[in-house]
Design a protein around this nucleic acid. Structure first.
Length: 657
DNA sequence: CCGCGGAGTGTTTTT
DNA sequence: CACTCCGCGG
């Protein structure tokens, strides 16, 4: 995939230099899209090392692991020492910290990180156990329950506040959900479970402790935080606590690109930074080295229509006018997919390789017709965002076996793998778990007779995979041999799943510590494809496209109800975030941008037929070149006003010139 | 107690 | 349209 650094910028400009050289004391960098902030971080790392700072004393906190790796490996290309800089996500940093000081937090056994799905599973189990939703069909689903509890942590609110604010229809369940929250906390503590929110919460708790703060604070004398506009209150506090003693902290962000409010991102963090760190130096990076003027004009028009927010304008550094972004209209998703695919291939023929083109969308489902079209026509593509590798059932199954080796109190994993055995349902699974909880792995012969035969086979597989000294990959192999028959029986499409597990096996080979492998799987999903598809087209959610750029970009589904999502319709705040999402999408394009619309004939009552409201704003509308490719509409028009022949045919080459 | 089949429901974005 | 929940037959 492409990244910001392919942007041709021969030297650092004055503002960028200032950001690089200001190493002592707090520094706030407001960086518009394409303004070279990645370069600033890269050079700042090199500059610090050049000053004689030990790489180990530099900490770089980013939003995704990939971002940190990119920046550090680029710096390492100039100076190998840069590869020893500590870099990662807040969550992985927090996990290491919690693990290091777990006794202080009152944990005795090993810790297991719960991903979102696990957390939901745990909640559902508790709901059942406590009989909370009994006979009540209106009782919230596990996903909603998890969202509510998560919001209390990430937005620092009480359950009542969260429900009053975003889930008014659930007010009557407030008391029950409070009970659930307590039970969930106890449950996690007993099993040694940490969900994503616990990681941040506990890290803050640790750093608030003077002694810990002193130890950790002296470890990292220079702290840098990327994508600061998308940090939440807890992450903001972690950054603050880390740098409180020495004040050597740089944060980089752009409030206009804050798109993680739904996850508790608190963009006020950026505004409050100067207050938190008095004497802070502010640097504004406005020059855009990425896009042609026509694209920037659209970006600026969107910026103009945003309520509140910083006043700023993207200033083009490239000086090329470029072609006005196209707004293309279609009758249905298939027409749209067909057109986009053929336009992509057309540009490829004209010299823009597939790897430098990307199709972006608000939500994954929107891209399905296009994926079908691309597959049909043999266009190689790679999808980012949406369903994740480590969330697939067979991957979770396999990881569950390993998780039990790492933490035998892991009830959720026991439950999962027991249910895979024929003849074992919830009751038997529970019985076996209760037995294991008390007696450990030593099972008497008489006990076996109580359960289906498969249970014994499972235990034997687990026994033979045990052993501290064994490499994670060896254990993996033992358990995979056990699991493959289960896989074949459970899934018709097992060959491709078997292949996924082969990839997982390879990843396991990079680790010599099982714990670490497993926590990484939850917090920082290992790259699913070691060898990336060469020369493939990128399909990505807008969220996953953050920080990236391509020569040619398509925004699929510029439909009111998709972008903005209909889920955001009744919240002013969420609508603003959707608008920033549009801004992020259009500013990914370097040379060429096309937006597209199709009529969405929803199943059931909902059908979407209006252009995104953000694009209807006068100035935004004017920054686009509107073209109606709808065959349906063309047909209608041909009937209504005879004489015009509307749009000729679907001879693709003609249409985009 | 398990597991299958039918009915009903609500649908985003991610560490 | 995919997933969850419920009820019934084995």
């Amino acid at each position: 995939m492409n990244d910001s650094e392919s942007t041709a910028q021969p030297y650092l400009n004055e503002q960028q230099w200032k950001a690089v050289r200001t190493t002592e004391g707090p520094l706030l960098v407001i960086a518009g899209p394409g303004s070279g902030k990645t370069r600033v971080i890269e050079y700042r790392v090199l500059h610090l090392i050049g000053q004689g700072i030990a790489p180990k004393q530099i900490l770089l906190l980013t939003f995704t692991r990939k971002a940190a790796q990119e920046m550090l490996s680029r710096a390492a290309a100039h100076d190998e020492r840069a590869s020893h800089v500590h870099g990662g996500t807040f969550h992985s940093f927090a996990y290491k910290l919690v693990n290091e000081f777990k006794e202080r937090l009152g944990f005795s056994g090993s810790l297991t990180v719960l991903d979102e799905k696990d957390a939901e599973e745990a909640l559902q189990k508790l709901v059942g156990r406590l009989g909370l939703g009994d006979g009540d069909t209106a009782f919230p689903k596990k996903h909603t329950l998890r969202a509510i509890l998560s919001e209390t942590i990430n937005k620092d609110k009480t359950i009542t506040e969260v429900i009053e604010y975003s889930y008014e229809h659930l007010l009557s369940h407030t008391k029950t959900i409070e009970r659930l929250e307590e039970a969930y906390a106890v449950y996690k503590r007993e099993a040694g479970y940490l969900d994503f929110d616990d990681l941040l919460r506990l890290a803050v708790q640790l750093l608030r402790d003077e002694e810990v703060a002193r130890m950790v604070g002296s470890r990292y004398r220079y702290v840098m935080v990327d994508e600061y506009q998308d940090t939440n209150r807890l992450q903001g506090e972690i950054a603050y606590l880390l740098a409180r003693a020495h004040g050597n902290i740089m944060v980089v962000g752009d409030d206009a690109q804050s798109i993680y409010g739904f996850r508790g991102a608190y963009h006020e963090n950026i505004m409050q930074f100067p207050k938190l760190f008095p004497g802070c130096v502010t640097v504004l990076l406005e020059k855009n080295y990425r896009s042609v003027q026509a694209v920037l004009n659209l970006g600026n028009a969107i910026l103009e229509t945003m309520p509140k927010k910083f006043k700023k304008t993207l200033v083009a550094a490239r000086g090329e006018t470029g072609v006005k972004p196209q707004m293309a209209y279609f009758g249905d998703a298939e027409e749209e997919a067909h057109w986009i695919r053929s336009r992509i291939q057309y540009l490829e023929k004209k010299g823009t390789p597939l790897s430098r083109q990307a199709v972006l969308f608000r939500s994954s489902y929107i891209s399905i017709p296009l994926q079908a079209e691309l597959t049909k026509q043999g266009v190689p593509y790679e999808v980012f965002g949406g369903l994740k590798f480590y969330e697939m059932a067979h991957v979770k199954d396999m990881l569950s076996y390993l998780k039990i080796l790492a933490n035998d109190k892991d009830e959720l994993s026991w439950n999962r793998i027991l249910l895979l055995i024929p003849g074992v349902g919830p009751k038997t699974a529970d019985a076996v778990w209760n037995y294991v909880k008390i007696n450990g792995g030593a099972v008497s012969d008489s006990e076996w007779k109580k359960y289906p035969d498969g249970v014994r086979a499972l235990f034997e597989a687990l026994y033979s995979a045990e052993g501290e000294s064994k490499a994670p990959q060896d254990r993996f192999d033992t358990l995979l041999a056990y699991y493959v028959p289960v896989l074949k029986q459970k899934f018709d499409d097992w060959p491709s799943r078997r292949n996924d597990l082969e990839i997982l096996r390879e990843v396991a080979g990079y680790y010599d510590n099982l714990q670490l492998f497993l926590s990484d799987c939850a917090i920082e999903p290992p790259e699913r494809r070691q060898k990336r598809k060469e020369g493939a087209l990128t399909l990505s959610t807008i969220h996953s496209a953050k920080g990236l750029e391509w020569d040619s970009v398509y925004l699929l589904g510029a439909i009111d109800g998709v972008l903005p999502s209909k889920m955001a319709f009744d919240s002013e705040e969420e609508l603003e975030e959707e608008q920033r999402l549009l801004y992020v999408a259009v500013t990914r394009a370097k040379n060429d941008l096309a937006l597209s619309f199709h009529l969405e004939s929803g199943h059931g009552s909902f059908s979407l037929h209006r252009l995104s409201r953000f694009l209807e704003e006068k100035e935004v509308f004017a920054a686009l070149e509107h073209k109606d490719y709808s065959e349906r509409r063309a047909r209608e028009r041909a009937v209504w006003d005879e004489g015009t022949d509307g749009i000729d045919d679907n001879e693709e080459e003609i249409e985009y010139e």
